[in-house]
Each structure stands twice: as C-alpha cells, then as structure tokens.
Nucleic acid binder design. Structure first.
Lengths: 192, 192
DNA sequence: ACCTGAACACCGTTCAAGT
DNA sequence: ACCTGAACACCGTTCAAGT
C-alpha cells in the first residue's frame, strides 16, 4: 500500500534518532520506507519542506502542554518547558529548527500562540513580544545544550537543568515586573 | 604570495554577504582567492573548522563591546547588544553559529566571559549561568530575526528592535531580582 | 496515483603530483 | 611550504518511464 506523508516524517525522525542531522538525507529516509529517494517527492515538495514539517512538530508540542493555572506567566513557562523537552528528545532537534524554513502561515501561528496570553490579561503587543522572547531563549538554550562539545565541557561548570530554569524564571519574572511599562529602563540599569 | 588562514576566513565572509549560508562552499571561497578548492585544506582542517572560526568571530565581537559602567548587569546588556549587532551584519550569521562546531577551548572561553561578571560582584555559578542565558536568548532571537519568512510576516506584528530589547531587559532585571536567591520561585508563579 | 531507473549538477574530501 | 588535477563517494533533484 502507498506511503503517506506522515510516514515520511516518521521515518525522518527515526533517522534523526539513529544518526542525527548529518545522517538525515533523502536516501536514508526512503530506504527505511522500502522506497527509492525520488519517491519522496510525491509526498513532499523538497527536503527543506520535510525539515519544516519536522520543526513544526516541535513547536506544536509546546502548544500542547497542559496548563493547570491560567496566568500568562504560567502559560509561558509551560510552553517553554514543553518545547525544550520535545527538542531534547531528538538529537540535533534545536539545530534542525534553526535551519528549517517556517512553513505554515506564520501570522496565524503567532496569533494562536499569543491569543491565550491575551485572554489571560496581557495586551496583544506584549503577548507577541513575550512569546517570541521565550521561544528564542528556549531554542537558543537547547542549541548549546545539544552540542556535544558544549555538553562535555560545560556540563562540569553549570547544571543545564538548573541554569535553564533560572534564566526562564528570570525572563518571565522580568516580564511581570515590566508589565504595561513600555520599554523604559529603571535608573540603575543604563542603556548602551 | 601564499594565502593565509585569515584570507580564507575573510573570503568566506565575502561569500556569506553575497550569497548567504547556502552559497558558502569551498569552491566559491577558493575561487575568490584565485585558488582551487583543495588548496584550502592547507589552511583549514575542514569546512566545519572554517565555520567554527567564523562563528568564533561573532562571539568575540560581543566581548569587545566597550562598557562604560561596571555593573554585571551592564556587562550582560552590552555583550548581548554587541553580539546581536555583529550577527545582524552578516546574512545567516545566527544560523551559522547554530551549526558551527565550537572549537576553541570552551572552558577557557566560558571563564573569560564570566570573569568580569564575577569581578563585578556576581558569584561564579550565577555568572556562568546568566551569561549562558543571555547568549542563548540573543542567538535564538537573531535566528528568527534573520529568517526571511519571519522577517516578512512578523515584522508587521512586532518591532524586532523593541521586542528584543524588552526581552533582554526583562532577563537581566529578572537576574537582578533573583540575585543570590537560588532558583526558588515566588509564590505567585507555579512551577510545572 | 504512486513509484523506479537513470541521470545531472554539485558538494566535501583525498591524494599523488607539481613547484 | 603551498598549490593543482583528477578522482571519489555522496547529495538533492529532475524526468521519462513503468504499474
């Protein structure tokens, strides 16, 4: 029976688990489906689109995080932690997201992420901006965390888990502090 | 006269400016030096090492930021802004840093970055952890900022400059708030 | 509709050989 | 010491052709 688009994505994730981003090529993916490389082009426009589909699944896992509390702070924390967990579960996932072209309509996605924050009391522009910052911090963090060199050498100096959490809390508490304040600076911190 | 290692790096940056990360290959770099591709291997171990050398130059620009004030807060802000400026000056620079293997001794680099923060009154573990968070946030941010799709679609919703600054200030103010406090949470923010 | 075979241009890298 | 020519294995992609 024919192969589906989701089969292709699943096979690509299998390859990632086994050989990381460097081992991810259309021949290895197709081989796992008992199919030749050109067959993939029936289900996917290009390798870039495949990367985009894979990346989208990580962002989605962040959104699917169950949130008990209702504050926008808790939503941001839950999103970030779920996003990081999802990334850490696949080798090189953060790098994948860094190079993958965004594919779904970015406007709609941004709105979907920001809407709950607005419902939780944040104004729209702060919601978008805070969400963007949290995603950026999380992706950037895991890029370093998943780099093997970093992991070997830096793991002795800082605890990734604790330090990630420290930064995330600082960011969200900082947002709480500044809520509704525009981007003016407190006097004890100079702007460059 | 013979070509130097720095010539290779400079030529690689020229290619990045002209055709971005996708256009960066050893044949295009060597052509710009009136040399054939295999010649580069005399000056550089591999393409990966070349990427690492390029990435290192961005991190260095962050360190070379002139800091007027002495607080560790100001140092973190200055580093982040200089790092972001450097990245924005070269197309795809953030993606480059995301995929480049770290090459110089990571321990030493981390210490060199953290030392001034310690001198400015922060304890060592907070210094390392705060510095890591700021670098992660900045790199992650510019990855999105330099993505053309993001730039076209999201630029209408948020102002990159303002939102970056908001997040950075929130992060650093959050660190100030939490200085010496370990990673406990304030009661109004639940941990997942 | 879905897949194969064969081919193309391109890539990083190696290595013997030149100077 | 520094570079070239030729070659290798590998890659994304195209396309005519099969079923």
């Amino acid at each position: 029976m024919p192969i589906t688009r989701n089969d292709v994505i699943a096979a690509a994730f299998d390859v990632m688990h086994e050989s990381g981003l460097d081992g991810l090529n259309l021949r290895s993916v197709s081989a796992r489906l008992n199919v030749k490389a050109p067959a993939l082009y029936w289900h996917v426009r290009s390798k870039a689109e495949l990367l985009g589909l894979m990346a989208a699944s990580f962002y989605r896992e962040g959104t699917e995080a169950k949130v008990s509390a209702q504050s926008w702070q808790d939503r941001l924390l839950a999103y970030s932690r779920a996003f990081r967990r999802a990334l850490l579960s696949v080798p090189d996932a953060a790098r994948l997201c860094a190079i993958a072209p965004p594919l779904e309509d970015v406007d709609a996605t941004a709105r979907r992420l920001a809407d709950p924050l607005v419902a939780a009391g944040l104004n729209r522009s702060e919601a978008l901006s805070n969400q963007a910052a949290v995603v950026a911090y999380t992706l950037g963090w895991v890029i370093y965390e998943q780099s093997s060199v970093m992991h070997d050498h830096v793991a002795n100096m800082i605890d990734f888990e604790d330090s990630f959490e420290r930064g995330l809390m600082a960011l969200v508490e900082g947002f709480s502090l500044r809520e509704g304040r525009g981007h003016s600076s407190p006097s004890y911190i100079a702007r460059s």
